[in-house]
């Protein structure tokens, strides 16, 4: 399995990395907070950790730690617009339930 980015998401990430002027890729992860168990995190990567796993998708290096991978393996990251708002969206096949706001989830 792997983590993938849609073409739109990848081009956005490349643009943001360019604008930032530094960083080796995009880190996806989960942390155990939130109203429904787990929450996604999405960060720029400046330093790799020893245990990190790396995927390549549309020219973007996607970094993830093995503990997070089990919860989001197979996820496709998309970039969408909803009205005036825009941002990244996790399409995670492991999710069994989400809180109303969608910021946290259970597997």
């Amino acid at each position: 399995m792997a983590i993938t980015l849609t073409e739109t998401a990848a081009s956005r990430v490349r643009k943001f990395l360019d604008n930032r002027g530094k960083g080796v890729g995009l880190r996806l992860g989960v942390k155990t907070t939130g109203c429904s168990g787990m929450a996604y995190t999405l960060e720029f990567v400046d330093e790799l950790h020893e245990e990190d796993l790396a995927f390549e998708s549309h020219g973007v290096k996607v970094i993830i730690d093995p503990k997070s991978l089990v919860y989001i393996d197979g996820t496709e990251l998309d970039f969408t617009k909803e009205g005036l708002n825009e941002g990244f969206k996790f399409n995670n096949p492991n999710v069994k339930g989400e809180c109303g706001c969608g910021e946290s989830f259970t597997v």
């Binding site: 109203c35 999405l42 720029f44 708002n85 706001c101 910021e103």
Partner: peptide, 17 residues
């Protein structure tokens, strides 16, 4: 679901924060 933005390393906000 909510739309996320990319945060600085280690600066991810908790949900609703």
């Amino acid at each position: 679901m909510a739309l996320l933005q990319i945060a600085e390393p280690g600066m991810s906000a908790a949900p609703h924060q």
